[in-house]
Amino acid sequence: MTYSTITSSTDTLLQVNNVSVYYGSVLALRDVFLDIPKQQVTAFIGPSGCGKSTLLRCFNRMNDLIPGARVEGKISYRGKDLYDSDVDAVEVRRRVGMVFQKPNPFPKSIYDNVAFGARIGNSKENLDELVERSLRSAALWDEVKDKLKASGLSLSGGQQQRLCIARAIAMQPEVILMDEPCSALDPISTLRIEDLMHKLKQQYTIVIVTHNMQQASRVSDMTAFFNAEAAEGGNRFGYLVEYDKTGAIFNSPQQQATQDYVSGRFG
């Protein structure tokens, strides 16, 4: 099995170098090599249990919150190993924002949700401006500008998810991770968020995990296909099958498994 580097190394923001992830003694993801380019959208696709979310959560060290989780290999962000002993996970998360599958606004006002990152970061910035700018970037401003004091939970599901995106943008991160951000949303809200991603990639590097292949082909520049395999003992672990430009993955995949998956023959 070979892994090709498609991107020129000058653009690489995140480097995944021979990474395996374990939960306790159970292998979840094996031997991944991957370069994630700057200011592009990279999509991770594959069947359930293939480790795509697991890998995503390594980029902002959210796996730290799971007891027993262990990462082997090296994940570099701007050349710095994210799992070095001197790296502070909190600092990583300020630069690598995340949007979750289920919208999770805090039970606070819309304004306070967006201002949260600046407040804990002791930012000296004008909060009103920051909130407006972030909500505009998340294409939510016009809908909420008259009710910024209303609870974030009073919004519809799609609006809540855009609020979470605004909240992430307000931290002024470099990378935004999205873990199946549209799977809990209706088709119209989904389209809006996909539009948003196209705009956001001019400023941010986006990595998105999705079950939806159409979505991957619509929004992403690069696509990584992961698959799952049963290990001895019955546990399943994931591995990277193929990583290429999105067009190549969907039109001329090198691997039979990728061909089968993108043509809908399994998964």
Partner: peptide, 12 residues
């Protein structure tokens, strides 16, 4: 490969 972008300080 050499990092393309500026190295960064992630320590606290």
């Amino acid at each position: 490969a050499l990092p393309a972008v500026e190295p960064i300080d992630l320590t606290r």
